[in-house]
Design a protein around this nucleic acid. Structure first.
Lengths: 202, 202, 202, 202
DNA sequence: GATGAATGAGTCTTCATTCAT
DNA sequence: AATGAATGAAGACTCATTCAT
């Protein structure tokens, strides 16, 4: 018979996760101390540790949660019927990423960069991310197939290649927006549309 | 030991930088301790610190050096005359990144991910990277202009948008290859070529 | 451990301060390592650092505390009514310094010497000391005025000069006792009394 | 057959000592690094170490030299015939200390404070200082005897006590001037003269 | 003799985690 | 269950001294 209800537990968990998000994004994963998170969460050290056994758990949880929320935003875009055209889809995904970032003091792009870096060293995280991106890429494969069915791309096209290309476009948008700046979802849309009409190498 | 020659100094510096590269990439930027680097370099703590005043300096130097070596590899691709077609260019750039990574125990893609993450917190690094990517993007703008002149893309195309799109493609390749796997330079080439023939959204 | 009581906190603080005093005086301010103090205090590094953020803080606190304890000993001597005669006062102050030093393993004179040296480089400490000595000198000015009122010194005497002279006598006692040795409070009393009867330069 | 003449050696030694003085006084004994001194001296590390085997040697030498120079300044004051009256003597000694400090970037008072502090931990230094101050005090004993012979102080006076008192006055002047400020040699002269005419405790 | 690069033990300080109350 | 004080193993960096050239 737990002293506090399950909703309360879930609320607490989220409270901690929110604190972690804020800190991680402001300071980076490693420069953020557990104490930073503990203070930002308004709870005690013991309390935080009762929800997440290690800092690593917290990192993985924070990143995983971001990923699954993002997933929820992305799914509808892939499910559209009739499917969005490639340039439209890229724009919408990029816009979704931006939209996700508007939540106060939270920039998904920065967090993504932190996560990718961390994934190099963190098996668990790496696996989680791989799953997520593989799933998303599979969704893009389906989209490519739909494009092929709809005659939007060549009959002979390999949907895998198309999916990989669209995924690169989107991942690259995140990097470019976070590091270089001066790109918008529409830049990619117009750029891709321009390339789309290109005369292929002879 | 009287004054050391400039070549010797440069060699020592490189020796340290190489040790740092190896460690950083194996362990990540923060999990790597100065002691790791010191041991890997075969020098003493004092010696290493006489070349790089802080760990941060070493991080920036290692990343900056990678960037400028990469720059050397990329320049010729952009300078080709006649210019490479978009799909070819993307493939070549991705291939160059892969080639750069073959050097024993050094994967540029992983290092790039670490660097992007670090750039969030490190002003100096961020500025250096921004310069590099802005310069590269400018090179792509020139390429786009050449494509336009050559009739490969529409007269009305905005070279900036095209450059941003190509840059995204390449940056995204790095992420996808490092995190998701199962992509190759040719995947992008084929994917882009497929999209290139696409029927635009009406 | 839930919140610790204020007394307990104060006790711990004192425990650390005592350890620091002992070490500082045995080894000097700089030759004493934090580890020395940590070990002597019987606490852990983290615990000590939770009370004093830096070694410097600890130095300042240790010295400041000595000063304020000494202050408590000196005040009554200056407040005597009728006031102590100059030679008596000097003797009593010197004796108070000696008495303060008897506490096991603690010699105020040595600590004073360390503090003066440190004050050259430490703004905060310098200010604290200046305040203390200025306050004490002001007390001596009042004493000099009382002597003048009581006819013990000339009507035309400048109390400031007298205070500075008495302060020098006392500070010099500390140096002489610590460095040269073979002086006692009574030496100054007798010496000053002898001089007191001197025939001034004509 | 030494490569460089003895004068040259002596000049070099002084050059190093001067550099050390400057650094010590600006930064304190411990905050000054050998490198500071080496750079200030304009010589190489090896060269400096060929003159002084350890930093400690350099500290002792620098302090000892100061002491013996000061000694040269003080001796004539004690040798005056007829002897200076007590208040005059104190003033002159304090003035000599001040004069010694005027040499560019060198304040004897500060160095004295550093030296006293160091002497607590440094046997050699302590012995040297004790010798110096004991010798000086002996000089003051002689002065006191002269005062007694000349009837300036009571026939029954103990010259030792008088010497200790005068020494305290002078040492205290150094501390007061360095730490508290707002004292001059004349302050002590006037203060002592005032006390000199005091009515002793009944 | 002179040089100054190299050494490496030793410092201060932080911070993830625990556990007595 | 909750608290937050305490732990202590690292980690980054310094600097007196040496010695190969």
């Amino acid at each position: 018979m737990p002293k506090i209800s399950d909703e309360k537990r879930a609320a607490r968990r989220l409270q901690i996760l929110n604190a972690a998000w804020t800190c991680f994004q402001r300071e980076g994963l490693h420069a953020t101390t557990m104490d930073d998170i503990i203070r930002a969460s308004g709870l005690s050290a013991g309390a935080v540790y009762s929800y997440f056994k290690t800092k690593d758990d917290l990192i993985v949880a924070a990143l995983t949660t971001s990923l699954s929320e993002l997933s929820g935003l992305l799914r509808p875009l892939l499910a559209r019927d009739p499917p969005l055209a490639p340039d439209e889809l890229v724009r919408e995904i990029a816009a979704a990423v931006e939209g996700f970032s508007q939540r106060d003091g939270f920039d998904l792009k920065r967090v993504a960069l932190l996560g990718w870096s961390e994934a190099q060293r963190n098996e668990r995280l790496r696996a989680t991310m791989q799953d997520f991106y593989l799933g998303f890429r599979q969704g893009l494969v389906e989209a490519a197939k739909a494009w092929r069915r709809g005659g939007r791309i060549a009959r002979a096209a390999d949907p895998e290649d198309v999916a990989k290309t669209v995924l690169s476009l989107v991942l690259g948008y995140v990097v470019q927006a976070a590091i270089v700046g001066d790109v918008e979802p529409d830049s990619l849309k117009r750029g891709l549309r321009t390339l789309t009409g290109a005369r292929a190498a002879s």
